[in-house]
């Protein structure tokens, strides 16, 4: 394992410290417990939008803290949900009197820890709402699973909720808009290589030189299916087909197409995938009205990609387009 880290046990904190120094104009890093807030704090009277989860998915979530998106982020250890007291500290710091929306990716650990934090915060008189993101179509949402996972679609939920809060919407309104995004967002990912968690020191799964893992999450979990490595077109077709099988898109539907790198994928390859996915959607009569291509929701240094399709009605489109100024997303 070769990584640009010192003590693996301190990796999250060391990285956060550098992040705080590099972006002091936009965010403030707090330690013991670890959380990140907007520089200057949540504007008074505005709903605070907070997300968090295990580290290793950078820039998610801390990279999206700033005007127009998150008011706070709570990073756990690598691939490990943050603890309730971390989340509570972030909630206390970010609440500006209008309540707090917690955006939680659907994993047992995240759900349990955020749930506990929400109870503690409510006990202190802070109004809290939660929205669960579960966009990963690789997992069936059935009695036989913990439900679909939250993956790259989380970015879309965070952007829309943050824009709604910035516009002065109430907690109930922000939560409802976030739920609307969740209802229309689906993702599917593939890994060409596994990733190595620093304190584990070996790859999270073993993949032969001619195999790819389809239907991975973002924690180096093994995927749904292991297939012979084929070209970008074949792989992209598998991803987009799974997404389109899961969500009913009327011809003429307007969507965001988000091609997300898993951390170790060159930008040039993401654009090849984007081109194929875009053509497939066009063939279905689906209109891509917005695009995002980059490594935003990652699994450490994993090589791979996920494709996210999010339905954008007029209001969601307006919120997506609203200005945002964060370390990792600005327009």
């Amino acid at each position: 394992m070769k990584k640009l880290l010192d003590d693996p046990a301190q990796a999250v904190t060391d990285s956060l410290r550098g992040f705080g120094l590099a972006h002091a104009d936009q965010i403030s890093v707090h330690t013991e417990p670890n959380f990140v807030t907007r520089a200057g704090g949540t504007p008074a009277g505005q709903v605070a939008v907070i997300s968090g989860g295990g580290s290793g998915h950078e820039p998610l979530h801390a990279g999206f803290v700033g005007a127009g998106m998150l008011d706070a982020a709570v990073p756990g250890e690598v691939f490990t949900s943050p603890t309730p007291d971390q989340v509570l500290a972030a909630v206390q710091a970010a609440d500006a009197g209008a309540g707090v929306l917690l955006i939680v990716k659907n994993y047992t650990g995240d759900v349990l820890n955020f749930e506990t934090a929400a109870e503690l915060a409510e006990a202190e008189g802070i109004e809290v709402a939660s929205v669960l993101v579960n966009d990963d179509v690789a997992v069936e949402d059935s009695l036989y699973t913990a439900g679909r996972r939250g993956v790259a679609g989380t970015l879309v939920v965070e952007k829309v909720a943050g824009a709604a809060a910035a516009r002065g919407a109430s907690l109930a309104e922000v939560a409802a808009l976030a739920e609307r995004v969740v209802a229309g967002v689906r993702s599917m990912g593939v890994a060409l290589t596994a990733c190595t968690v620093p304190h584990v020191g070996r790859p999270s799964f073993d993949l032969a030189d001619d195999e790819v893992e389809i239907g991975i999450g973002i924690h180096g979990e093994p995927g749904r299916q292991r297939v012979q490595a084929a070209g970008a077109s074949d792989i992209t077709r598998r991803l987009v087909d799974s997404v389109l099988d899961d969500i009913d898109l009327a011809a003429g539907a307007r969507v965001l197409l988000f091609v997300n790198g898993m951390g170790g994928t060159p930008a040039s390859e993401l654009y090849v995938v984007y081109g194929v996915a875009r053509q497939m959607l066009a063939d279905q009569g689906v209109e891509v009205v917005r695009s995002l291509v980059g490594s935003y929701v990652t699994s450490l240094e994993m090589q791979g990609v996920s494709v996210t399709v999010a339905v954008l009605d007029d209001e969601l489109l307006e919120l997506w387009d609203a200005p945002v100024r964060t370390p990792a997303l600005t327009w």
Binding site: T80, S81, P84, D85, Q86, N113
Partner: peptide
């Protein structure tokens, strides 16, 4: 509760 996180921490 305050150091583990993950699923096993709250459990």
């Amino acid at each position: 509760m305050s150091t583990v996180g993950g699923a096993s921490g709250p459990l």
